[in-house]
Simulated scan of single mutants.
Amino acid sequence: MNIATHPFDALMEITARPPTVFVRGEGSYLWDDSGKRYLDFIQGWAVNCLGHSPPEVAEALAAQAKLLLTPSPAFYNGPSLRLAKALTEHSCFDQVFFANSGAEANEGAIKLARKYGALHRGGAYEIITFEGGFHGRTLATMSASGKKAFEPLFEPKVPGFPKAKLNDLGSVQRLISDKTVGVMLEPIQGEAGVWPATDQFLRELRALTREHGLLLISDEIQTGMGRTGKLFHYEHAGITPDIMTLGKGIGGGVPLAALLATDEASCFEHGDQGGTFNGNPLMCAAGLAVLAEVSKPDFLKSAADAGLFLESELQRISARHGLGEVRGRGLLLALDLKHPIGASIVAEALADGVLLNSPQPDALRFMPALNVTREEIALMIDCLDSILTRMGAARRVA
């Protein structure tokens, strides 16, 4: 189908999209309907942890589709039981609730914390979150987010989410009251421009929440499933949260998410939580295939090594072009551009056959497949270097 004949107007206009229609993907590459190939360093916003259409996921889906799609969440099914057990064995958590998206998992975490507050903390319901944080696009998760663009939207917001400053323990302490039930944060704030919580801050935050009997909720929608070089980011700080959410990478490209909690924090009663497609065997089969690959020690080491190589190459590019710091961890990194040129770089890269992301006007975010090769990183770096060189020349002429 020619681009001119695509019925673009049938889709709601919720974001600016280029007139590119992708039809096929493999590994780190996508192809559009004209046959042009693109090197993808977005990967569905850190979704395709094994790259596009990985054989392991495709085969798991095909095999499960022939057996059972969904029996209803009112019944057990094998893949959901096996995936839940595998996740608890690989983490510090005891129980799992499956969902379809990260926002839905975070919504579940908020509900679970409020239920805990109702049962154990005299009706406490406030969850301290952070400026710059992003937890999803449901009404409650937008309210929990600290994204400035969300502030005027869809009022009135859901109350109960006072905002602290990342890496500022005092700002958290000042917000704690008898209404507080927990603290919720992303270990690395992705949408804000890849701003990490320090390991020391995470350890101090865990100590503070324990001191006050509060739940610590780790939103690992973007950082989980090997993205930062360990299976889960909380492992870097050596802490154990009470609740964790997973999404994006857990499905390797299909809609799957999870809410994990310790036995102590797991207090839902029958009827409190549910969802028609939650924990369906088709998606859980994909999750099992992803977890089997990502949890391999050699895989995680390779992903961590790729992250170090990407980081060093971005630092080299930054020094060459007089740009700012490289932030993040593993294969979730950002380059500070110092100037609001992110959108221009993204557009030029698209024309050159490379997909990049600019979450903020002055930053680029890099979220390649966890099995990205050094050669693919080098190709992206060469493209970025050329674009920055052209931009620099244009600025000098101007």
Rank of each mutant, 00 (worst) to 15 (best):
M1Q: 07
T5Q: 15
T5Y: 09
H6G: 05
P7A: 08
F8Y: 15
M12D: 14
E13K: 12
A16V: 09
A16G: 03
G25Y: 06
Y29L: 08
Y29T: 10
Y29F: 12
W31F: 08
D32S: 04
K36Y: 03
K36T: 08
R37W: 06
L39N: 06
Q43P: 04
S53Q: 15
P54N: 14
E59C: 11
A63S: 13
K66R: 15
L69G: 07
T70E: 08
S72C: 09
N77D: 14
G78H: 08
S80C: 11
E89P: 07
H90L: 15
Q95A: 14
F98G: 04
A105N: 01
G108H: 00
L112S: 03
L119Q: 09
Y125H: 06
I128W: 03
T138E: 04
M142Y: 00
M142W: 01
S143G: 03
K148H: 09
F150Y: 07
K163V: 02
L166W: 01
R174E: 04
P187L: 02
P187R: 03
G190I: 10
L205H: 04
R206H: 09
L215Q: 03
S218V: 06
D219T: 00
D219G: 01
D219I: 00
D219C: 02
Q222I: 12
T228P: 00
H236Q: 14
G238L: 14
T240G: 13
I243D: 02
L246D: 00
G247I: 01
V254W: 06
A257Y: 01
L260Y: 00
D263K: 14
S266R: 08
E269Y: 03
G271W: 08
G271R: 06
G271V: 07
D272A: 05
G274E: 04
G275V: 10
G279A: 05
P281V: 04
L282S: 05
A289T: 10
A292S: 13
K301S: 10
S302F: 03
A304K: 11
D305L: 12
A306D: 01
G307Q: 02
L308H: 11
L310M: 15
A319H: 09
R320L: 14
G322V: 11
V326K: 05
R329G: 00
L331T: 00
L335Q: 10
L335T: 12
D336T: 14
D336C: 12
S344T: 11
V346R: 09
A347S: 12
A347R: 13
A349L: 09
G353E: 07
L356P: 05
L364M: 08
A369C: 13
L370G: 02
N371A: 10
R374W: 02
I381G: 08
C383K: 12
D385A: 14
L388Q: 14
